[in-house]
Structure formats: C-alpha cells, structure tokens
Design a protein around this nucleic acid. Structure first.
Lengths: 389, 389
DNA sequence: GAATCTTTGTCAACGGTATGGACAAAGCGG
DNA sequence: CCGCTTTGTCCATACCGTTGACAAAGATTC
C-alpha cells in the first residue's frame, strides 16, 4: 500500500484559515450575530473571534450593524455579512441557450444575460462563452471572487470538459482558458452536479448529509452529494445514470447500447413515445395538460416514463441509502401523475424501511440551480464556506 | 440553511496530531526510513520530524534499526515501525461461527479463536462474544489499542446494531456494551463494509480512491469506499444491495418483496435454482465442479446467478463510476464461468467507456477480511492511520 | 438612585508548535 | 588531509489560540 503521494502537513496558517471560515460561516448562516455568540458557537475564545471578525471587516465581508438586546449585561454589537462585498461570475452551459450571471455572496442574481447558440458548437460555442463573460464584466460590479461554470458532459476536477456531445467539445480545458483570459479563480463542474450542490446548500434547511438531485430534460444526469460533498467517482462520471440499461430489449440509444434510461424517460423519448401512441402533442406541457384533462393514453405515457425513473431511484436508494432525492429539469412539468409513478415504482423495488423514509421531491425546472451551484463551489473553495453536517 | 451544529474549531493540538499521524504513516508505509527522508516527504522540517519521531519512540511505536547507506553525507539513522507494539482485538460476527483474533499493527493475526453458535441467537449469541473476548484477553498480549467488530445487519455510527436478522438482534448497543465491559476504545461496523475497507487498505497498491466490495454468501451486501472513506448513507444502510428488486415477477424474498437480488444470486438461492433444475448438488463447490466438468445445466445455473450480479454491478458503475469492484464470499467458488457472466452483463448494461475501465476482481472467500477491516477502522481512529489518495 | 451583577469586547502575557539558521557528527571524493 | 554533503539536534523566532484581567454598559436589587 505504498502510496507515493502524501497528504499535506498541517500548519498554523491552516488552523487560522479554518477558524476564519468558521467565523465567516457563522456570520453567513446566522445573520446579524454578536462576537460573543460566535465564540459560544464555535468554541473559540472571544479574543480570537474578535480578531477574526476584524479581518472580515477589513476585507469588507462583514460590517457592524447596530446593537442587540441585552440579556443582563452589556449590549452585544451585531455583525452582519455584506452580501454585496464580492460578485461571482457564473455560467450555465447546460442548455442550448447559454446563460451568464453575476451573483452576490448570498447567491442573489445581480445581472443576467443569455445568448442562444443557434446550433453553433465547438469553437463558436466557446466564443459565445467569452462574449457573455466580457459583456458581464463590462457592467458595474463589485470585486470578482471568481468564475464558476456548470457545463454538460464529463468534466474532470481540473476543469477540463472531457466529453460534451451536444457541444462537440472534447478535452476542452475550459477552466484553464477562462483563468488565463480573465485571471480570476475558476471552477468548472458538470451542470447536474452543480445543481445538486445548489439544492443541498441553498434549498433545504435541516437535511441529512446526503442528497441526490436528478436532472431530467434532454438528457438524464444526477448529482451526488455524499457526506456533504460532491462525489465525482474515479472517472468524474458519477451520476451519469442516463445510460444505465433499464430495458435490455429496448430502443437503441445514441450511445450504442439498447434500452438506456434516456431512451425511455428523457424529454425527447417521452415525446417520441407519445407520438408512437398516436398522440398529437409536440411539447411536454401539452402532454401534461392532456393527461390532467383526462386523456388516458397521455397518462399512460407519463406513467411509463415515471416508472423507468422509479427503477433508477430504487437503485439509488438501495446502493446509497439516501433520504433526499430531488427531481428537476424540464420533464418535471409532467407533475403529480409522473411523480406518483416514480414513487410507486421506487417503493415497489426497494427495501421497505429504506423506501419509507425517502423523500422524493419536486425541484421544479430549476432555472438558476446550475448558476447557484457553480457559485457555491466557488464560495466553498475561495472562502471556505463549506457545509458540513 | 441554519444548521445548529457547527464544525469544530481548529487548535494547535490538532495540527500536532495531524503531523504526528503523518510521520507515523510515513514510518508505517515506507518501512525503515530516515528522519530526513520523512521531512522531505511530508514537507515538515527535520526539527519537527525529529521531535515527532521521538514521541513515537517514547510510545514504543517506532524504533531505530540501524543506519542506511550514505548518499554523500552522514549516514541516515533508519526508523522502523514496531508492528507488535500494540494489539487489536477483532471480532467477525458475520458467519454462524463467530471468530475473534488479536491482530498487530500490520494486521497480522497473532491469536485466533472461534466458536460455533449452534443455532443460538439473542443474548446467548452475545454471551459467546463475551466468552471469546475474555478468552483472547487471557492470553499473553501487548497493550490493547481497542476492540473492532464486524457485525452483520445495519449498524449505526455509534456502534449499535439496529437490525441483524440472523442473530435476532435489534437495537443492540454492542459498542457501548463492549466499551463498558472492557474499557477499550471500541468500533462496531457492518461486516461487508469492514471487508471493503480491508480490501481497499491492505490489498491493493495503487488503487483509485473508490472501491466497492460485494460480499456474496448467504446474503448479499456491499461495502462502499468513496474518496478513500467508508460511506454509510443516511440510515447506515448504504450498500445493502441484496434487496434491490431485479426481477419484479420473481420469487418472494423474506423481506416481503418479490425478485430481490438475494432471491436469485445468494448461495441458498443458487442451490435452490440448482435443485429446481433437477441437479443433485447440495453445495456450491459441488455445483462448480460439475459445471467445470461440462454439466451444461449447472453452467446455466451459475450464469443466471452471475447475470443478476452483473446487473447490480452495472448499476453501481453507472451511479458511482467506480473502477474497482471486488467480489468475495462463499459464492466466489463458482469461479470463472460465474465471473464471466457478471462481466458480460455488467458491460452490456453500462456505458461503454465506463465499463471498459472497470476491474471486476475475485476477492476470494475472504476469511480474514472482516477482521482486517475492523482492525483498520481502529488504526484509523486511534492512530490516525488514514489512507488518503 | 446607588450598588452589585452580567455580559461584551479588548488588551497583555503566556504557551504550544512549526520554522529557519547554525552547528557538530560523520561519511564521500579528490 | 581538506572541502563538500547529508543528517540530526539545538536555539531563537514567529504565529496563533488561550487565559486572565479590565473597562464599558446595561440589568437587577435594594
């Protein structure tokens, strides 16, 4: 078991950084809060907290905002986060319309622009990315903390997009390119994964430490947050469940296999199934409306798609014993009948006690989730705003 | 996202502990090694390393063992681990014969005893545990580092066995009981998971940081090592893949569902299938021998079981993108035909690029894996001998 | 209203721990 | 034999969290 690489040593600077981010997180999470309260929460002394808060104030990240009520002694001085102290450039390249936005430290969108690809891919798509960032940075903004990108396909930890079919990108070192061009810290991650992290961080209040967010749209991909952190797998392909074979004798998938989940439950697949059943609906909302209005054939199409997802969910539950499963993406417009089929199938196919405690919830079409997730990754890496359990 | 619990502060003592375990690990992994070499590896100064090695020597964990060859200067003093400096009490409660053993710091078995349960369960089975530990501790031994237990069923992080069907244990706080009775640090973990960790730590040399070890015997369970650490899931049930439904119209399982993986691919299920096919073999080795001798029916039975496992493996690959999958347990005696069926089915059902790089290997019947894993958990917690990547 | 108690935030002294420089010991090469 | 290199240790220094004390300022009690 001789591993040549060694974990890094611990230094005083690291302890300092850790405690600094602890204080920042207290201010971030618990709104206006006194130094003494932070000291009680973190276990640090009031002295240390005072010093660290001083640094935050110096960096403009925190500010005194008045006094709190006394509890029998001197009034505490309340310190609050300055949400607008930094801006983060975020990009969502997961749809055929690229979106770029400036977010503040709370994940609030301050500026947003987008541009349709018009079928462009390769270098032209990359040019669109540059245009969007250039335009965003031309607008008034606070000091930039970094650039966060959610991109489709398989993205490695270095920020290289190894394989993104729809954009014809292979081994595109997007992270390095952006860093070289703009000079800011840059993170590139898979869009489904970013969305999963966003859901985990911004959406819930008292979650367990694991969450799976499945994005179901043109493709199907899941982001896995395990023990509070995004899990990538050995080849950065964790969560790529769209190509698990569900029906070995099913239709051919563009990946070459037969009966992949995507051939049954993705948005295009559902519309194909509807057409095959003789239904005249060309979009998912139309299909959903028909089903809600009592069209049994439409309902059956929805349910069949739901059951396939339910099978995958059962596998997720059985393998990971995860409590929270969030479904998002364009297909969620199918609404309750579809969800019901998913829940039924997931329950039918997994161990009772596990399935019973699982919550399968609607994450909506998740407009900003990818942007938020990319932002969250930056906040974690640059400011240490990790969420442990 | 107000979480009331906070991560703990960092202290100087923690930096010290971290660096101490870094030095220990260098000595542990890289055999006799000089202080200067440790300093280069860890990035610590020779001063710090000298001090820390001094502590290890004081604790008896390390010892100077001579001089190394000069490389143009003073000969280095080599420091080596004293493998026998501590003993760990380990228990494997996963089979119907309980095993207890004393292991040294290298995981070498120094003493081993076992006792058949003779069908006992509940408190009587617990009494057997006490007997075994009493007897082991009555033998000559080094200072005890702690007690590590691999137990079947669902075990939570506190060391309570929430549910172990075969032993009729529910909510048995085994960890607390053992700690109260013997006073040593105690860890109780699921046996499959312990075995997975053992495989990860002791077996490979340059693994990726993820590994799934599937134990296939009377039951089927997997241990998940993700990013170098055991993953438990929200309800400590991660890896309980035996009850994922593979054939919705299959046979009834004792869990109440139909067509669970265990109803098809566990040892008893395979023997049932053999009987149903009119074969006269009552044990797996007999079945394997017949298949190897050209019995096509026996071969077909083996392959059917293998394909079911292969389906589960495909799900694991698709969800986790894990490179290394180890199969162990009594069913591995079926040998190559069975493995081939697993590999074929796993490949057929998962995305090409992923499946191609996956290694599905034979972990054997894994006699001591659970003991080793329990030992490894203790080494990690008590001495910080974690293996990062 | 005065005295006492509580709580807050800060300051100075202290202690643990990693670092850097210096140095003796000990071997190699010319 | 002399210079160079490497090793292990000693000493002084710097970083940073802790401890104890204290002033400020409000609450509580008499």
């Amino acid at each position: 078991m001789a591993r040549t690489e060694f974990p890094t040593k611990a230094t005083h600077a690291q302890t300092r950084a850790h405690n600094a981010s602890l204080v920042l997180r207290a201010v971030y999470d618990l709104g206006p809060i006194s130094r003494a309260e932070i000291a009680r929460l973190t276990g640090l002394t009031r002295t240390s907290v005072g010093e660290l808060v001083g640094e935050l104030e110096h960096d403009g990240l925190a500010r005194e905002v008045g006094r709190g009520p006394s509890t029998g002694g001197k009034q505490p001085t309340l310190v609050s986060l300055v949400a607008d102290a930094r801006h983060v450039v975020t990009l969502d390249l997961g749809e055929r319309t690229f979106t770029a936005a400036l977010l503040d430290l709370r994940g609030e969108v301050r500026e947003r622009i987008s541009r349709d690809l018009d079928g462009e891919d390769g270098d032209n798509a990359l040019a669109v990315v540059y245009e969007l960032v250039d335009e965003l940075l031309a607008r008034p903004h606070q000091p930039i903390l970094g650039i966060g990108v959610g991109a489709p396909g398989i993205v490695d930890v270095e920020g290289t997009i190894r394989w993104a079919v729809n954009l014809s990108w292979t081994d595109l070192a997007l992270g390095n390119l952006l860093h070289a061009r703009y000079g800011y810290p840059t993170i590139v991650a898979n869009d489904s994964r970013a969305a999963a992290l966003a859901t985990f961080l911004f959406d819930g209040d008292d979650r367990p430490s694991n969450l799976v967010a499945i994005k179901i749209g043109r493709g199907i991909g899941a982001g896995l947050v395990l023990d509070g952190e995004l899990f990538g797998g050995d080849g950065d392909g964790a969560g790529e469940i769209g190509h698990i074979v569900v029906e070995p004798d099913g239709a051919e998938c563009h990946c070459g296999r037969f009966g992949c989940l995507e051939t049954i439950a993705s948005a295009p697949a559902i519309l194909r199934a509807a057409a095959a059943a003789g239904l005249p609906y060309a979009t998912l909302p139309e299909l959903a409306a028909a089903a809600d209005a009592g069209d049994d054939t439409a309902l059956a199409v929805e349910r069949a798609a739901g059951r396939a997802i339910g099978t995958a969910v059962a596998n997720l539950i059985g393998i990971l014993d995860v409590r929270d499963i969030v479904l998002h993406g364009s297909v969620t417009v199918l609404g309750e009948p579809w969800f019901e089929a998913i829940r039924d199938e997931a329950t039918r196919r997994s161990l009772g006690p596990l399935a019973r405690e699982t919550r399968i919830v609607d994450g909506g079409t998740g407009e900003d989730l990818t942007l938020l997730g990319a932002c969250a990754l930056l906040l974690t890496r640059e400011l240490g705003l990790t969420v442990h359990r």
